[in-house]
Structure formats: C-alpha cells, structure tokens
C-alpha cells in the first residue's frame, strides 16, 4: 500500500497526463452525449452568449456587404414577380375563318391580330406607338393598326417581340381617306399642331361636305381595309386659288389613352404595292 502511494506520488504528473488524455479522448468520442449533459448546456449558455455579443458587434462591419446582398436578392426576387412576365400575343382573330379561300370562292385579304400597347408618345412631332408583338408573332412592316375607336397608324419597324407603329400624329404619316357620305377621297396628314386634329387635303370641291361628317379609310389604301373610322370633320377651309378643300378632322381615336390595338395584315399588300410602284410598259 505504501509502495502504491509512493508510486502515485512519484509519477503523479504522468498519471494525471494519462487521465486527462483519456478524459479528452472519451469526451471527443462521445461528444453528442456530452452535449446533452447539464454541464455542457450550462457552458454553452455562456459561450453562446459571448458568441452572440461578438457576432452582434461583427455585424456592423459587414453591413455594407449585407446590404448589397439584400439588394441583389431583392432584385432577383423582383425579377421573378408574375407581373414581369408577359407572353407575347399569338392569338389570331380571323376575319372569316382560317381558310385562305372560303366555300363561296372568296379569298382572304385581311388577317387581324390583337396587340398590347407598351409605349406611346403624343407630345412630339414624330410620334410612335410601341406594341408588344413582333415579327415572331407575325407582325410585318406595313401592317395597319386600329384601335377600338378608329385607326391608329402603320407598322414601320418590327423586332422579334416588339413593333413600332407610326402614329397618325406623325409628320410623315399619310393615309388615304374619304368622306363616308360621298366617297370623295383625300390624303390624311398631320400638321404637327394639335394631336386631336388631323388635316385632310385634296378633297374635291365637288364634295358636299359639312362639319360633323364622318371620315373613313378609302378604298385606295393598301394597308387599311376600306371604311374604317378615322374621325369627323371639324372645320372646312376652301382656298379660292385651288379646286380642293382642306378639312380639319377630329380624330376618333384617343391617342392619349391607347391600351390595345388591332393589327390588320393585308395578305396581298406586297402584291398591290409592287404593282402600284412598277413602271408601266407600253
């Protein structure tokens, strides 16, 4: 017994080393069990508290980065909002039916396509309407655009998913129009003054025109089907030196609040234009 005590005394440091090592290894090997013990949870309370304070302090240094990440995330999430997704219109509303030629032998001339207006200007001299429907959805240059109230303009540019319509209130816009009452044709233009009034030139003085008469698209237009509403006569000026009236037309279309337009495709547009532009060979 005395020898054992002596032995322990003599090798105290080595024995305590061994004991502490064994404790360490045992703790390491069943870390999860230790974790559940009361002592560990009490210590975790302390270290966790210190950790919390430290991370609260550290957070100040990463505010900028955190902000950036949040902005990025917000941006990413905003881009996923349903409102950002718009399927381009691919509906086709047919004039008669989908056949090129119906049973009575009449051939299709016009195809109608609806389109949503996504851009519209009316304060400039050259105004355009942008629509969300492009060449991928069957829009081609030269198609006519009308609203539910009256005609709007002519497609002048297309991209895969968007198109640009030259509005009637554009200095270069020229549409063939006629008086509904007696079919006297004229050329519809805009003088750049007031977006609610257009100018109809070259109406013969033989026409019986009165203020309030309707003006519709003529038979001579390659883009527009005939007899679509344009507006009403608001003023008549006749120059004694010429044989033509110059009429002031109040537009039927409200260019300030366009929401949807219909595009009208003339199936034989290119054929007609080509023929009209060809030089007659006699």
């Amino acid at each position: 017994m005395k020898n054992i005590l002596f032995f322990i005394r003599r090798y105290l440091s080595f024995l305590s080393f061994l004991v502490l090592q064994v404790i360490s290894i045992v703790m390491l090997s069943n870390a999860s069990k230790t974790h559940q013990s009361f002592f560990a949870s009490a210590v975790n309370e302390v270290t966790g508290n210190i950790n919390k304070r430290y991370s609260g302090f550290r957070d100040y240094f990463t505010l900028k980065e955190t902000n950036r990440l949040l902005v990025e995330e917000n941006n990413r999430l905003r881009n996923q909002l349903a409102g950002n997704f718009e399927s381009p219109d691919i509906r086709k509303e047919k004039f008669i039916d989908t056949l090129l030629r119906d049973t009575l032998g009449r051939a299709r001339k016009y195809t109608w396509l609806p389109a949503k207006v996504v851009g519209n200007s009316y304060t400039l001299q050259n105004n355009y309407v942008t629509i969300e429907r492009g060449s991928n959805q069957g829009v081609t240059k030269g198609m006519a655009a009308i609203s539910s109230q009256g005609i709007v303009g002519v497609v002048v540019e297309t991209s895969p998913n968007f198109s640009k319509i030259m509005s009637l209130i554009h200095r270069n816009s020229k549409v063939s129009a006629m008086l509904k009452k007696d079919n006297s044709a004229g050329s519809l233009e805009w003088d750049g003054a007031d977006p609610t009034y257009l100018i109809l030139r070259n109406v013969t003085k033989g026409a019986k025109v009165a203020v309030g008469d309707s003006v519709v698209t003529s038979n001579y237009s390659a883009n527009f089907p005939s007899r679509l509403m344009i507006g009403t006569v608001a003023g008549i000026s006749s120059e004694s030196s010429s044989n033509f009236y110059t009429l002031k037309i109040k537009t039927a279309t409200n260019f300030f609040s366009l929401q949807y337009v219909y595009l009208i495709e003339n199936v034989r547009y290119s054929e007609q234009v080509q023929l009209e532009n060809s030089v007659p060979k006699n």
Binding site: F17, L20, Q21, I23, S24, I25, V26, M27, L28, S29, A31, T34, H35, A40, V43, N44, V46, T47, I50, N51
Partner: peptide, 15 residues
C-alpha cells in the same frame, strides 16, 4: 466549448 469539439483541443494541450 467555443468550437463545439469537446476534447479535441484539450488533448493536445495536455500533451
């Protein structure tokens, strides 16, 4: 106790 590895650093320290 800070790193959550009970005994991992204690053993080398004792050594």
């Amino acid at each position: 106790y800070f790193t959550g590895t009970y005994g991992l650093h204690a053993a080398p320290c004792v050594l």
